[in-house]
Simulated scan of single mutants.
Amino acid sequence: MSLHEDQYFRDRTILSARNTDVDLIKKEILQSFPGNLETFRSADSNTVEAGADNHAAYPSEYLNSLDLSGIPLSKLDLKIGCPIILLRNLAPKQGLCNGARMVLTRFLHRVLEARLLFGPHAGEHVFIPRISLTPSSTALPFHFSRRQFPVRLAFAMTINKFQGQSVKYVGLDIRVLVFSHGQLYVALSRATSPNHISALLPQNSTVSNIVNVVYPEVLLQ
């Protein structure tokens, strides 16, 4: 993939309101994306605090099924040339910070090689190792750790995650309507021009107007 194709990913994104819809979009795009699919599986573990009454050992199948915010998937499917986003600060001075987007150029068993898309280090090649990650906050009744590459696919993102960023073209998936304060406004303001926004409405929908959810209580504070 050339640097000209890097510009394609810099200029475009798909936004949706829910994480589940974003994951489905990314899965569908990856299936049609050219290249051989490589699957990387995590090593998950749970630990119990010393002196705790609950010493249950949770099965690996359950730990692998956990999908937590800021944590990579247990089963990570990747292809060379696909866009990915970094989930942790690894080396901010080299451009490897949380939210950095890049294009995957090579994968090995213990390291990924990628090319940065944005910032002063755009175009530079970086290496991403497997690391152990623990969710910052969770309702799980145990301490959870996942050893995996700290990345996710970046074909699509949630509207909330994309706040503060802008691109030339935005594809907006609103088959499931927005539900939080100002979410639609944020989505529609991510493109550099209103002429560069394409919206996917619910199937068989005859309505072209979408309500922007606004909570007056927020504006009064």
Rank of each mutant, 00 (worst) to 15 (best):
S2Y: 02
L3V: 14
H4A: 15
Q7W: 03
D11Y: 03
D11G: 00
R12E: 09
T13D: 03
T13C: 15
I14P: 00
N19H: 13
D21V: 15
D23L: 09
L24Q: 14
L24W: 07
E28A: 13
F33S: 07
P34E: 13
P34M: 09
N36M: 11
S42W: 01
N46G: 11
T47D: 14
E49T: 12
A50F: 14
G51C: 10
A52S: 15
H55T: 14
H55D: 11
A56H: 13
A56N: 13
A57R: 14
Y58N: 04
Y58F: 15
E61Y: 08
N64T: 07
S65H: 08
L66C: 06
P72E: 10
L73D: 10
K75Q: 10
C82A: 14
C82R: 03
I84T: 06
L86T: 06
A91W: 00
Q94T: 06
G95R: 06
C97Y: 15
C97N: 05
G99V: 07
A100I: 05
V103Y: 02
R106Y: 11
H109E: 14
V111Y: 07
L112W: 02
E113N: 07
E113F: 11
A114F: 05
A114I: 09
A114N: 06
L116V: 10
L116T: 04
L117I: 11
G119T: 07
H121E: 10
A122D: 05
V126H: 02
I128N: 01
P129V: 08
R130N: 04
I131R: 02
P135F: 08
L140S: 01
F142W: 09
F144N: 04
S145Y: 00
F149C: 12
V151P: 01
L153S: 12
A154R: 03
A154Q: 04
A154D: 08
A156R: 03
T158K: 08
N160L: 07
G164M: 13
Y169P: 00
I174D: 01
F179E: 10
H181F: 08
H181K: 11
Q183C: 07
Q183H: 06
Y185F: 12
V186N: 01
L188P: 01
L188I: 09
L188C: 12
S189K: 06
T192L: 12
T192P: 00
N195H: 15
H196V: 02
H196F: 05
I197W: 01
S198V: 11
L201D: 03
P202I: 12
S205R: 11
I210T: 09
V213A: 07
V214F: 10
Y215D: 15
L220Q: 13
